[in-house]
Design a protein around this nucleic acid. Structure first.
Length: 282
DNA sequence: AAAAGCCCCTGGATGC
DNA sequence: TGCATCCAGGGGCTTT
């Protein structure tokens, strides 16, 4: 499933190529998680300014060419979420949409297409990032883990205010974004923290280790091209190779790489958690 | 405010 | 072999 590194790798794989193009046509397949929020024709003629990212959302910024006169051009943004099974393709010529291709946008530079069998993904149009439609999805998000705003002191302070199990706080995304189920398990292993421990009961020393682990694991995963744990590929169709680096996720019953103890699997918030009962006592 | 549970969906794995 | 059942998971929403 796409987590922050996969989304970032996807962005890097097509952002430069689509920037500056003009939207020619938009086609929709079966309904995604949310409706597009505007008629598909509304996008036609708009210019693609660039692609940025906020958490696991890709933000495709658009601009309608001024109709004439001095009026400032209207700007808009497409919020793209890959959900659990989504992937983007961008190419000059793509074959006809398949049964799982639910959003297709032809531009002068190529076609951008969302392939999403489980349809947990979404493509939503908003007039701007300040628009309530965008704020509903982005407004509550925490700090970007790979930005210079992700500071140890603030991270510790936030965690000390939360009583929920630390893994659930990571997944909630309101302290730090982009840490999904796989990476949450991995970073807690690296920091030696038991996933079930209340966030505010974790020592400051280990919270600082966790902060460093989040930066290290996510940036490493980006440089590796993302995870292939769930058939991930970037918009060029290339696969990442992070899966071999997972130390606990999906390894229940197998020996811990550090101490040899069998990795344990539990369920938290209807999601599986894998951890080493010996290495993760903090 | 924060925490916990619900629900959307379907390919792949498992069990009979 | 073919069927039914279960499971995975992101994250906004509702309820506590």
């Amino acid at each position: 499933m796409p987590e922050l590194p996969e989304v970032e790798v996807t962005r890097l794989s097509f952002a430069d190529r689509i920037a500056g193009s003009q939207v020619l046509a938009v086609g929709l397949g079966k309904p995604l998680r949310w409706p597009l929020g505007c008629p598909p024709e509304h996008l036609c003629g708009q210019r693609v300014l660039g692609v940025s990212r906020r958490g696991k959302y890709l933000l495709v910024s658009l601009q309608r060419p001024p109709a004439g006169g001095g009026a400032s051009p209207e700007a808009g943004v497409l919020l793209v979420h890959l959900g659990m099974s989504g992937s983007l393709q961008f190419a000059k010529a793509l074959p006809a949409p398949g049964v799982h291709d639910h959003f297709s946008m032809d531009t002068t530079a190529g076609t951008l297409r969302l392939h999403d069998p489980r349809r947990f993904g979404a493509v939503v149009y908003a007039d701007s990032l300040a628009d309530p439609v965008a704020q509903r999805l982005l407004g509550h998000l925490g700090v970007e883990p790979l930005s210079t705003d992700f500071l140890p002191d603030a991270f510790v302070a936030h965690m000390k205010q939360r009583r929920a199990p630390i893994k659930q706080v990571l997944l909630a995304g309101d302290v730090v974004v982009g840490v999904g189920n796989i990476y949450a398990c991995e970073v807690l292993f690296l920091a030696g923290i038991r996933p079930t421990v209340r966030a505010d009961r974790v020592s400051e020393r280990r919270l600082r280790l966790l902060h460093a682990a989040i930066r290290q694991v996510l940036s490493q995963a980006v440089s590796q091209g993302g995870s292939t744990l769930r058939n991930f590929s970037n918009a060029d169709g290339q696969h990442g190779n992070f899966q071999s680096l997972a130390k606990v996720y999906g390894r229940q019953g197998q020996p811990c790489h550090v101490c040899g103890t069998p990795i344990r699997r539990i369920v938290q918030g209807q999601r599986s958690t894998c951890y080493c009962p010996v290495c993760q006592r903090g």
